[in-house]
Design a protein around this nucleic acid. Structure first.
Lengths: 199, 199
DNA sequence: CCTACCGATCGGTAGG
DNA sequence: CCTACCGATCGGTAGG
């Protein structure tokens, strides 16, 4: 194993990472369909056939971007082991952090809307992703209910669905005018209206 | 004034209307950037320079579609003269009706996400539209508060913002999987949690 | 990773 | 409203 070979692999990984970063930004700016492999490649500093050496087609690049983001976020924030009110609170914290990285918010906002088209290459990805998100939040509200802290008359499943929808809608308003809105504050106020005070 | 001339104008208006309908569907399906004037023209049954005779450029067609929709909706549902809880209830009715015309839901969902890009031709339109929608719903909640029917501790302005966000987010989920979700029912349940029963 | 190329498609214009 | 065309750009491949 020569240093050259090791460095070669390291360079390849770094290049691949750079491509994913620029593709993330580009897909967020103009969506998948309007994004151009040539433009992404230029930002990376290579030719567009060079990019296609790392990702064999545009679709593969899109799916790699989405999977990579899911990996990063679940590593970094690992909400899986949380439950109930604690889970919901951590989701609000994640939204607050997302307000510091508009590129990620753009990516999900623009792609999820584009992917409502049934023939979109990320359609299945987003259908599955939403099912998971809604179920996860519904579980949070069910936990709150079990702890006697969900306001009476609230259906936990409907609340989970609405909570996810609220996050998405806030992202659109925030991206349109970033100064007019504190996403996490609206979510906190919403939770405060649904959750009975701990005493 | 010959019949021929009158019919000529009538034909022109009908054609213009047909173009707006097909453009609405197309922009909803793939967004503005990915939509093609040739494809829209083919659906109408004319050539694409023929289409450009009615609308001088792609941008003009987009703005005409958006303005036309606003006209139709405000004529048909005229929410302007309503206030307070009555206004909020009529918005829920409008959402229920929108569930019967997915093309319109698609149009706003896809274009609003695409138009978060500051250089998008519909950016200013959506910034203004959201400011109006949020203010209108906030007014509804202020009216409820004045009537003593807003749950204590709820801020009417935050509730207005959240209500608009909730509608938008529900649209994404509904377009991704139309059988899994009753948008109007979730909105009604949300209102029921915010508004004190009338007695 | 590159240059060079393919066929397809784009918005818009010329000229009628 | 049409045909015919413009320059630009697209995703992907050949061949090295």
């Amino acid at each position: 194993m020569s240093d050259v070979l090791v460095r070669g692999y390291a360079n390849g990984r770094a290049r691949r990472q750079l491509i994913l970063d620029e593709a993330t930004a580009m897909f967020g700016e103009v969506g998948y369909r309007a994004a151009s492999l040539r433009e992404i490649a230029t930002r990376v500093g290579i030719s567009h056939p060079g990019l296609l050496h790392h990702f064999p087609a545009k679709q593969a690049l899109l799916l790699a971007v989405l999977e990579h983001r899911d990996e990063i976020d679940s590593e970094q924030f690992g909400l899986d082991h949380l439950q109930g009110i604690e889970l919901l609170g951590h989701i609000v914290d994640l939204v607050a952090f997302n307000a510091t990285r508009p590129g990620i918010v753009e990516l999900y906002c623009v792609l999820s809307a584009e992917a409502t088209a049934p023939d979109h290459p990320a359609h299945a990805f987003f259908v599955q992703r939403y099912a998971r998100s809604v179920e996860s939040c519904a579980g949070g509200f069910r936990g709150a209910q079990a702890a006697g802290r969900l306001r009476p008359g609230i259906d936990p499943d409907a609340a989970g669905r609405a909570f996810v929808a609220l996050m998405d809608g806030l992202q659109v308003q925030w991206l349109l005018d970033r100064d007019s809105l504190d996403m996490a504050a609206v979510l906190r106020a919403t939770l405060a209206a649904l959750i009975v005070t701990d005493d």
